[in-house]
Amino acid sequence: MKKLLFLFFILLSSHAGMHSQSGKELLTLDNYLIPKNKKGISIGKFNIPAGEKISLTKDNSSLFTISKDGYISLKKNAALTESSPWRFEVTVKTKDGEKTFELVRDDFIRNKVIAHRGAWKNHDASQNSLKSLKKAIEIGCEGSEFDVWLSSDNKVILSHDPEIGGKKVEETTAGELHKIALKDGDRLPSLEEYIKCIKEQNKTRLILEVKASQKGKERCEAVADSAVHIVHRMNAQAWTDYITFSFDAAKRIRELDPTAKILYLEADKTLEELEAERMSGIDYHYSHFLKDTDLAKKAKSMGLLTNAWTVNKVEDMQTMLNQEIDYITTDEPEILLEILDAKK
Score class of each variant (00 low, 15 high):
residue 168 K to N: 13
residue 199 K to A: 09
residue 198 I to T: 08
residue 168 K to R: 13
residue 193 E to D: 06
residue 194 Y to V: 12
residue 172 T to M: 03
residue 184 D to P: 02
residue 175 G to R: 04
residue 177 L to A: 10
residue 202 N to L: 08
residue 178 H to P: 02
residue 174 A to P: 09
residue 173 T to M: 05
residue 197 C to F: 06
residue 171 E to A: 07
residue 185 G to P: 11
residue 201 Q to T: 09
residue 173 T to K: 03
residue 195 I to R: 07
residue 170 E to F: 05
residue 175 G to V: 11
residue 183 K to M: 08
residue 173 T to I: 04
residue 166 G to Y: 11
residue 191 L to Y: 12
residue 200 E to N: 15
residue 197 C to G: 06
residue 181 A to R: 15
residue 181 A to V: 13
residue 174 A to T: 01
residue 174 A to Y: 00
residue 170 E to L: 05
residue 177 L to D: 00
residue 186 D to I: 04
residue 168 K to E: 14
residue 191 L to P: 04
residue 188 L to D: 01
residue 202 N to A: 10
residue 176 E to P: 02
residue 197 C to Q: 13
residue 173 T to Q: 07
residue 182 L to T: 06
residue 200 E to H: 11
residue 178 H to G: 00
residue 187 R to G: 07
residue 194 Y to D: 00
residue 180 I to M: 06
residue 170 E to W: 01
residue 201 Q to R: 04
residue 187 R to N: 09
residue 200 E to Y: 14
residue 174 A to W: 06
residue 186 D to R: 00
residue 200 E to M: 13
residue 177 L to I: 07
residue 191 L to V: 11
residue 184 D to K: 14
residue 172 T to G: 05
residue 176 E to T: 12
residue 183 K to L: 11
residue 195 I to D: 02
residue 168 K to L: 15
residue 193 E to C: 10
residue 199 K to R: 14
residue 191 L to G: 12
residue 184 D to T: 10
residue 184 D to F: 03
residue 187 R to K: 12
residue 186 D to V: 03
residue 188 L to R: 02
residue 166 G to C: 09
residue 174 A to R: 02
residue 183 K to G: 04
residue 178 H to M: 07
residue 185 G to T: 13
residue 188 L to G: 07
residue 178 H to V: 12
residue 191 L to F: 15
residue 197 C to K: 11
residue 198 I to G: 09
residue 196 K to N: 06
residue 189 P to V: 12
residue 188 L to A: 01
residue 184 D to L: 07
residue 190 S to V: 00
residue 177 L to G: 01
residue 167 K to A: 12
residue 189 P to W: 11
residue 181 A to M: 14
residue 202 N to D: 01
residue 188 L to Q: 02
residue 192 E to W: 03
residue 180 I to K: 03
residue 187 R to P: 02
residue 180 I to F: 03
residue 186 D to T: 00
residue 192 E to M: 13
residue 180 I to V: 12
residue 187 R to Y: 08
residue 176 E to M: 03
residue 195 I to Q: 04
residue 187 R to S: 12
residue 196 K to I: 04
residue 185 G to E: 08
residue 177 L to W: 05
residue 168 K to W: 10
residue 170 E to K: 01
residue 167 K to E: 14
residue 191 L to M: 14
residue 183 K to N: 05
residue 175 G to N: 11
residue 169 V to K: 01
residue 202 N to W: 09
residue 182 L to Q: 09
residue 198 I to C: 14
residue 201 Q to I: 06
residue 174 A to L: 06
residue 201 Q to V: 04
residue 172 T to W: 01
residue 166 G to K: 01
residue 178 H to N: 14
residue 170 E to I: 12
residue 190 S to N: 06
residue 178 H to F: 15
residue 184 D to V: 10
residue 201 Q to A: 03
residue 184 D to G: 02
residue 199 K to M: 15
residue 169 V to I: 14
residue 182 L to P: 02
residue 201 Q to N: 00
residue 166 G to P: 10
residue 202 N to F: 04
residue 188 L to W: 04
residue 194 Y to M: 13
residue 166 G to M: 08
residue 181 A to Y: 08
residue 185 G to W: 13
residue 192 E to I: 06
residue 178 H to Q: 15
residue 202 N to E: 06
residue 172 T to K: 00
residue 183 K to A: 06
residue 190 S to Y: 00
residue 201 Q to G: 06
residue 169 V to Q: 06
residue 189 P to C: 12
residue 171 E to Q: 12
residue 202 N to C: 07
